[in-house]
Amino acid sequence: MKKNLSVGNKDDCNTAGFGRKAKDFRRKDSNTDEKAAAERLRAAAETLVPEKEKRGDALRQIRKNIHEKTMCQTDRTIPLGNLFVIQLRHISPSFWIIQGILAGSLALLLKKISMDDGALPDYLRWISVLAAWMGVLGCCSLGRHFSQGMAELEQSCYFNLPQLWTIKMTLSGAADVLVLALGSGTIAGKTNLPFGQVCLYVMVPFVLSNICCLLFFTALRGSRNRYGQLVLALMTGLLAAAVSSLPMEAYAKGSLWAWAAVFSGGIGIYLCQLRYMYGKIRRGEIVCWN
């Protein structure tokens, strides 16, 4: 009759559940050559009946080890799309609150100007200033990685800082553009101008203020704290107000090419700035300032 056997060596998964018989067998063969010993061990193993419970334990242990190994070397990753959702969840609530306040203020101001029968510059002045502040807010959200001392740690993660920046910029940029497009649509409706033309007038100060933000952000470390950001908001607000206070001739159809040129040039400069910033981050120049 076959005997029920106990576990031999718990650490050795191959012998788990086979027990004393295998162990004794191995001891006996300790001085013979390996090949013959392996052959005899295999033959002996065929006669053994593994203990169900012990074998179950051993298999569970093996599965656990494999699982732990998988966590280390798995090819399973979260999809990039999910990362957008995660970033959306982890963007500070104050960011969305301020963004909401700015959008709400814009709606109220547009309504008030409309009730006062305002002209195009009246609309543009306010929407430009608010657009600039939205840009500052977006930049502040990027700056949080540095001001909270998280940049270094995030740069060492699988999804690193430039990737996080890209996601955040896409999210906050999309929100800004949506609000500004809605604003531009309203203004276009009130002033009987083409939507694209109004968009251009609104987007130029927005792009310029974003350029200022990145410039300020790259050049001055102090820009990453709260006071620096307030100065930045004031500065870009003034810039936007200045742009939107141009004489009426500047808004003539014939000057559209100049607006388009400034807009394209601005986008180009902004992209160059981003490239420069990403290069700095990659080299660790602004991540490790201490």
Binding site: T77, L83, E154, L164
Partner: peptide, 13 residues
């Protein structure tokens, strides 16, 4: 959990 996401660890794990 935030850092786990940055480290690309699936949510269940």
């Amino acid at each position: 959990l935030y850092l786990a996401a940055l480290k690309a660890i699936p949510k269940d794990e």
